[in-house]
Amino acid sequence: MALLVNLTGAVLAGLVVWWFWLARPKPRRAESGPVAITMADGAFDPAVVEVAAGQPVTLRITRRDPAPHAAQVLFPDLDRAVDLPLDEPRSLSLPALEPGEHEFTCQMRLYVGRLVAA
């Protein structure tokens, strides 16, 4: 029994490391036009967006979560932020991005998403 419990613990620990650090969610490739992102129930949808590098991109973010920390989305690398009224989409135009990843979060980092420019 003890062996089983310890083994389960070790497997769980491995799963935590793999799921949260090693495995990456598959990015959703943005089609032409503004990229729609929704923030609700603690997660951006999509949480990882792939956009074309070297081209300006417009994001259209809709907040469905009334919690105050969700009232702003920050793009710390790009020094940009957008205020989000509840249930009203807001557009944010970003300049052409260098290839790489740009994180976006709510004020408290409870919502975390990534913009992958490729």
Binding site: W19, F20, A23, R24, P25, A40, D41, G42, A43, F44, D45, P46, A47, V48, R109, L110, Y111, V112, G113
Partner: peptide, 16 residues
Amino acid sequence: YSGAWKAFRVHNANMD
């Protein structure tokens, strides 16, 4: 619970 599940699906973990 729904926040935790949604965050988990996108490989994220938070206070929820």
